[in-house]
Simulated scan of single mutants.
Amino acid sequence: MIELYDRFPRTARLVSAQQKWLLTQAAYALHLRRDPADPLSGITAARLLDTIIDFGAASRNTATAFLSELLAYKLVRDVPGSTSKRSRPLEPTEASHEAMGLWFRGQMRSLDLLDRSNRVEMLEANPEIFLRAQPIAAARLIADRSWREPPLSISCFVWTEYGGLILDDFVSRLVNLTPEDGYHRVEGLRFSELSTHYSLSRTHVRRLFGRAEELGSIVIQQGRGTRKTVLAAASFILDYQRWQAVKFSALDQAYSNAVQSITAEEASTRSV
């Protein structure tokens, strides 16, 4: 997520808050499942709403406003040649394709680090894997309540603007992977630096961590001068690990399904 922000800050903003992450993934999956023979298929406000409304992930107004935001940022555009007056089919721009591809590749890289596999190598050899896997993973995660509605320690970050980015940045600064006396130590955390890097107000950053402190997720100890010691509760990090595990499980299964379907098609072609 941090790498995505550094390259595509506007796009990263849309996937760093949980509700917009869900909408982004749903919209992109709609595009990948578009039927070229049907000019009215793909991304529309009505289809996006139908995808998520059963799970209460967003309201009609939120979905419509979200698409307007994507249009304003030039992350989607009108499908060329559409003449429909009832519907407005949209498609991602090149920047969106590149950003989503980068995000997916990063997730595969994380999985490879966990089990020393070669998903990234396979993905680079055959980009079709991404095109097939993304809609599968998106559907599974949108339907999974444990991903949609993370525990309060996580949701206090990810249901706010840039909250997902701040949370990932925070966890990346853990020093001891094994907790000591129930806490992980955090190094290099400066609210001013987070504010500057992510173009956020210091008030917003302080509010995020203030809420986490109220929940007991973190402890901020004042040292000499402006120095502070920041500790993350082991229970908080465990919540984060479990929540991320839901995502990685869905992505791993989607990747496997995509590879299997491609392999089966290639075998069928060879037999013919």
Rank of each mutant, 00 (worst) to 15 (best):
R86D: 05
V230R: 01
A143Y: 04
P179R: 06
L174Y: 07
S87E: 09
A46V: 15
S172Y: 09
T44W: 05
F66H: 05
R145W: 05
F191R: 07
E91Y: 02
V272A: 14
Y28E: 03
S172L: 08
T44L: 09
T263M: 12
L251Q: 07
S16I: 12
T226D: 12
L111A: 13
G164P: 08
P135R: 07
A37V: 03
D239L: 04
Q19W: 05
D168L: 06
D38M: 09
G216M: 06
S256V: 12
T93I: 05
S16Q: 02
R145Y: 07
V171I: 15
D181V: 01
P39M: 11
L40R: 14
I237Y: 14
A138L: 05
A232I: 06
A139G: 04
A245I: 05
V171N: 05
V158E: 04
S192H: 03
E94C: 02
L71E: 14
D6W: 00
S84G: 08
T11E: 01
L215H: 07
L189D: 00
D6G: 02
L238P: 00
A137P: 03
L177Q: 14
L22A: 11
M1C: 05
E180D: 14
F209Y: 12
S235D: 11
E193A: 13
A125K: 12
L231Q: 14
A212N: 10
S41D: 13
M108Y: 04
I154F: 12
Y28Q: 02
I52N: 02
A138M: 03
V186N: 02
Q221W: 00
E128K: 09
H97E: 04
A37D: 14
L75E: 02
Q107K: 12
F248K: 11
L111H: 05
T178H: 13
L251D: 07
N257P: 01
L152E: 12
S199D: 09
L131N: 03
A250H: 06
H204G: 00
S256N: 13
S16K: 05
L23M: 08
Y28M: 05
R224H: 07
S256D: 13
L231P: 13
A133Q: 01
I43P: 12
S155G: 13
R202V: 06
I220A: 06
V76F: 00
R13T: 10
S59P: 04
R227D: 12
R105F: 02
V15N: 01
D38G: 11
N257K: 13
D78Y: 01
A57D: 06
N176Y: 08
A37M: 12
L215E: 09
W21S: 13
